[in-house]
């Protein structure tokens, strides 16, 4: 198993390298003068040239990418050009390994930006995943055992309707009614656990978490329903009933056990995708997470921040894939890693 994990990790690292390189190339292929954006509207040509040198944009793409990779491994200093650093030592900022870059726009290292934004996105993703798993799996089981009845049709239909509404609509709707008009929850704003305690933290995450969960709920209801129905039609379910087991035991211990396996995969990958930031939900609720950071960085052509977020989000997905594959060997005794 360890050899397998090591091999998968090595492949994952190579993937991340490729991912960062592709992002670099994509941004340099865009017909936008990065330095002009970084410098600002009022900059003269000379100031732009200085900015370009300071940020290292005057170097070829592969050199910049090399410096980026080196920064991740060994850390680096900004401005990127040693002569610029020597000329103005007071502007030098250190970026320790694993350094993801420096955002001139925010005057902060990308690590600091991500460090501020990531806990918000992670909290939001975790609250959402718990909500959609509890809701999706229980509604899916209920729909499966009442297959064809009005309950089944109601559950599948309603979750589909919820899925069909765009999340910015549901988000604004919830904000306006649940938070503002009915005052059922406080107007959501992110409060960290250190600042407000677990309860306030969670209370503020309820609404955005719900909006995010609603997006995934319909899929999980339908998947759970289909997997449970498939599992319940297997021969081993007939065996379980023939043993004289209670209906509850047959459903949960024998039926659900097999249905959960594909759900674990889906959850792992969906969660990993969300950890990189929920762009729409974070924008609607003005939650300064990775999603909002990405939007702002994209609008301002803040290349270092974009690359940093892309690499991080890619790492989440790759790590989740490895974890899910290894988890499979523990869930299903027939699976051998190799």
């Amino acid at each position: 198993m360890w050899a397998y994990a090591a091999r998968r990790t090595a492949i994952g690292l190579v993937l991340l390298l490729v991912l960062s390189f592709v992002t670099f190339v994509l941004f340099f292929a865009a017909p936008v003068d990065q330095a002009r954006y970084a410098c600002g509207k009022q900059c003269t040509e000379e100031q732009i040239a200085v900015t370009e040198r300071a940020l290292g944009y005057d170097k070829p793409v592969y050199e910049q990418w090399g410096a980026f990779v080196k920064g991740i491994v060994a850390g680096r200093q900004f401005p990127a050009d040693p002569e610029v650093r020597a000329a103005a030592p007071e502007t030098v900022s250190d970026c320790a390994a694993p350094c993801l870059g420096y955002s001139k726009l925010n005057a902060k290292t990308v690590n600091e930006l991500i460090g501020d934004a990531a806990p918000i996105s992670i909290a939001l993703a975790l609250v959402a995943v718990v909500m959609w798993l509890i809701g999706g799996v229980s509604l899916g089981i209920l729909a499966a055992v009442t297959k064809g009845s009005i309950v089944d049709r109601g559950i599948v239909g309603l979750t589909l309707v919820a899925y069909a509404f765009p999340s910015f609509f549901i988000g604004v709707f919830m904000l306006k009614y649940v938070a503002i008009r009915w005052e059922l929850v406080p107007l959501p704003r992110y409060v960290s656990i250190e600042d407000g305690g677990v309860f306030t933290w969670l209370e503020n995450l309820l609404l955005p978490g719900f909006v995010l969960a609603l997006l995934f709920l319909a899929g999980y209801v339908r998947m759970t329903r289909a997997f449970v129905l498939e599992s319940l039609s297997e021969d081993y379910i007939r065996t379980a009933r023939a043993k004289g087991l209670k209906g509850r035991v047959v459903l949960f211990k024998h039926g659900l056990r097999a249905a959960l396996t594909p759900l674990v995969t889906m959850t792992g990958l969906d969660l990993a995708g969300l950890l990189g930031g929920a762009i729409i939900t974070e924008s609607v609720f003005a939650y300064p997470g990775l999603g909002l950071l990405t939007v702002q960085a994209s609008n301002a052509w803040d290349l270092p921040t974009i690359i940093g977020v892309v690499v991080l989000a890619g790492a989440f997905v790759i790590v989740a894939n490895i974890i899910v594959d290894i988890a499979y060997a523990f869930i299903d005794p027939r699976v051998r890693l190799g």
Binding site: T239, R257, A258
Partner: peptide, 11 residues
Amino acid sequence: FQDPLSAMHPY
């Protein structure tokens, strides 16, 4: 049962 591979729970 007829086919004990499918009649027994794989997990």
